[in-house]
Design a protein around this nucleic acid. Structure first.
Lengths: 357, 357
DNA sequence: TTGAAAGCGATACCAA
DNA sequence: TTGGTATCGCTTTCAA
C-alpha cells in the first residue's frame, strides 16, 4: 500500500491514451459539442476504464460555473431548518449541484461570514433565510452576478426571488376550524410580535375572529419565545379568562407551554380547552397522549421549491415568488376530533432503514 | 445597474496596482512566506480597498487543498443528524473549512453518489456514517489520500478514525439507575437487534441485570423500529408480565410506544411503571406532562469531535478513535425523580433570537 | 468534426 | 526578501 496519494487521472491522460485531443474528451464527458457518436462512446468507455473523475475546481476556473450551491440558515441543528435543507439537497443533487451548508446562528455577522466563505468557493447561487439588515450585503452579491433566493422571510428591496409560507392563511385556517367546532371564546397566545412571520399569524387570528363577528382581541398575550414564559402567560390567561374554551398559539412551543399550564390548572384537553399550535414541530405529533394540533408548514417543500427556483434562475429562466400553503393537522388537542395516536409521516422512522434516528 | 457580472478582482490586479509581484500578494493574503511587515500591511490594505476575494477553485488547483469537507449522513432532515452536522460546522468553520453536506437516505447507492459528488469537488476529507458494505469504496478514497472519518458506527477494517458513543455504557447507566431506584422487574423493549448500536444497548441491559444478580432476559421483546409496533409489543409485554415495574427501551421511539401502551392499559407513569428511553430526542423532553427519561448522546459533540479529528489528521497529526460518554437524563417518567418540567438546553429556543424555529 | 493553443486565478519553485 | 515562470486540470476559442 503506497503512502502518498496517487495522482488522479486527468483529462490529458485519457486523451493521450486514446490519441485524441483533450477537449474531445471534455466534450465526451460533458456531452457537449459535436463529436462522432463512435468517438464519444469510445472515449466514455476509456473514461470509465481509467476511472477518471473530473476536477470541479479546474472546471470552475474555466467555465465560471462551480456547481456549488450555498445554503445558510439560522440554526442548522433545528429540525425545521434541517427539513428545509434536506429538501434543497434533494433537488440540488438531481441537478448535480453540491450543497455548501452554513449556519448563521441567528446573527448578521455570522451570516455574513458564512456567506463570504461560500462566495470564496464561488458558489453559483445562495439560498438564505436573510437577516433584514444585510440588504446591502446581499445586494452586492446579486450585483456580482450570483442569484440570491430568500426563504421563509424576505427582504422586499432585494429581489422577487423568495419562497414563503402563507402564515396569515395558516392562522386563519386554525382559528376558523375552532370557530366551526363551535368555539367562540378563543384566546391568542402569541410569541415575538416583532417577527414578521409571527405578526402575520396574529393578523390571521384577528381576521378570522372579526370575520366571524367576534370582537377581537378577545384574550391576547404576547410572550417571548420560551416554553416557560408561555406557560406562565397561559396560566395568567386562564385565570383572567376562565371562560376560554380554545386557544390558538403562534408556535408549537407556546402551545406546549399552554398545555402544561392547562394541565396544572386542572383544565382537561380537549374537553375544557382546545389548543392549536403552529409549525407542526416533531414533538407536536410525538406526544404520549394529547397530540398537538398544529398548522404545518411544508418544510421539505420549501427547500425543494427554493432549489428548483435556483436551478431555474441559473438556467436563465425567469422565476416568480412562491407562497406555499400551510396545512392544518388536527390531532387530539382539539375537541371534536379524532383522538387516535397519529404519527406525522416525516417523523415516523422507517421500519426498513438501517438507522434508527 | 449593470446586467453582466463585473469581473472579480484577481490577485494580479492587486499586484499591478501596487507594483509588486503576484505571489507577494498571495503571501500577504495567506500570511505565509517572508515579506516585510510594511509591505504586508500595505498589500492587505489595498486588498481590502479593492475588495479582493480569493478564488478557492484556483487555490485548490495549485495547492491541492480545497478547504472543503464532505459530510454524509443517512437523513439530513432528522434532528439527530442535524445536530451532528451543526457540531461539525462549528469546528469546520473555525478552521476556515466549508461544508459539503450530503444525504445518503440510508442506502449504499445514494451514499456512494453523494460521496462521489464530493470527491469531484476535491474535498479534503470525508466525514461519514458509513454503510458497512461500502468498505471497498471508502478504502479506495483513503488510498487516494483523502481521510475518512466515521461517526456513530464504523467499519473496523477501514481505519481507526472514528467517533462513537458508548452505547453499552449508556444502557447500563439506565438500567443501573432503575435498579438503584429499587426496581427488580425490569423489562427490555428493544428495536432492531441487527443494528450494531442497538445490539450494544441490549447487551448493556443484560450486563446490568446480571451484575445485579437478576436472571436476564427478564422480559424482552424485540420490535421493528416503529412507534406503533412498539406500542403493540409493549401492550403484550404488560399483559404477559403484569409484575413489571420498569422498562428500558433502546430508543425513544420505542419508549413513546411503550408509554402509550401503558397509558391505555391504565398503568400510571411513573407510579406503576418507570420508563427510560435512548437518544434523548427532542420530543423526550418536550412532552406536555410525562417527560421521558432518556440516555442522551452528545450529538453536537460527536460532530465537533469528528471535525476536530479531521483537522488534526489534515495537519498530519495522528488521531486516536474516540468513545464519547452518554448521559442519563432523568425526567418525570422515572419513579423517585424530579417531576419538574424540564427543557433540555439544545431544544429550548433562545428568547433572544429573531427566529423562532 | 477535430486539434492546437490560450487562458482561468492562484501557488510553488527557483533564481536573483 | 522579492520577482519571474511553470503549472494545476479543464474549457474555450480559433484554426484546420
Amino acid at each position: 500500500m503506497s503512502i502518498g496519494r496517487n495522482k488522479p487521472v486527468t483529462i490529458k491522460d485519457i486523451a493521450n491514451r486514446i490519441g485524441v485531443s483533450a477537449q474531445s474528451v471534455s466534450m465526451a464527458v460533458n456531452g457537449t459539442g459535436r463529436l462522432s457518436p463512435k468517438m464519444r462512446a469510445h472515449i466514455l468507455e476509456i473514461v470509465r476504464e481509467m476511472n477518471y473523475v473530473p476536477n470541479a475546481a479546474a472546471r470552475s476556473l474555466t467555465s465560471h460555473k462551480s456547481y456549488l450551491l450555498g445554503v445558510v440558515v439560522p440554526y442548522l441543528s433545528r429540525s425545521f431548518f434541517s427539513h428545509i435543507l434536506a429538501g434543497i439537497e434533494e433537488i440540488a443533487q438531481e441537478g448535480r449541484f453540491a450543497l455548501l451548508a452554513g449556519n448563521s446562528e441567528g446573527g448578521p455577522d455570522v451570516e455574513k461570514r458564512a456567506v463570504n466563505l461560500m462566495l470564496l468557493h464561488k458558489v453559483d447561487g445562495v439560498i438564505t433565510l436573510p437577516e433584514p439588515t444585510l440588504l446591502d450585503f446581499y445586494r452586492g452579491i446579486e450585483r456580482s452576478g450570483i442569484p440570491v433566493i430568500q426563504i421563509m422571510q424576505h427582504i422586499p428591496e432585494l429581489n422577487r426571488h423568495f419562497i414563503e409560507v402563507d402564515n396569515l392563511k395558516g392562522a386563519r385556517l386554525a382559528v376558523e376550524h375552532l370557530l366551526q367546532s363551535g368555539h367562540r371564546k378563543i384566546g391568542l397566545l402569541a410569541h415575538g410580535s416583532d417577527i414578521p412571520t409571527a405578526r402575520l399569524r396574529i393578523e390571521g387570528y384577528f381576521a378570522a375572529m372579526s370575520a366571524a363577528g367576534i370582537p377581537a382581541p378577545y384574550a391576547h398575550v404576547d410572550v417571548k419565545l420560551d416554553i416557560d414564559a408561555a406557560e406562565t402567560a397561559a396560566a395568567k390567561l386562564f385565570s383572567d379568562h376562565p371562560e376560554l374554551t380554545a386557544l390558538f398559539c403562534t408556535s408549537d412551543y407556546a402551545a406546549l407551554g399552554a398545555m402544561r399550564a392547562a394541565s396544572k390548572a386542572g383544565r382537561r384537553i380537549p374537553e375544557d380547552l382546545s389548543v392549536i399550535g403552529f409549525d407542526d414541530m416533531d414533538f407536536a405529533s410525538l406526544q404520549v397522549e394529547k397530540q398537538l394540533s398544529s398548522v404545518a408548514q411544508p418544510k421539505e417543500e420549501i427547500g425543494r421549491a427554493a432549489a428548483a427556483m435556483m436551478l431555474q434562475i441559473l438556467r436563465g429562466e425567469p422565476a416568480e415568488p412562491l407562497l406555499l400553503q400551510p396545512e392544518l393537522k388536527l390531532r387530539a388537542s382539539c375537541r371534536g376530533n379524532v383522538t387516535t395516536t397519529e404519527t406525522s409521516p416525516h417523523t415516523k422512522p422507517s421500519t426498513a432503514g438501517k438507522f434508527h434516528l
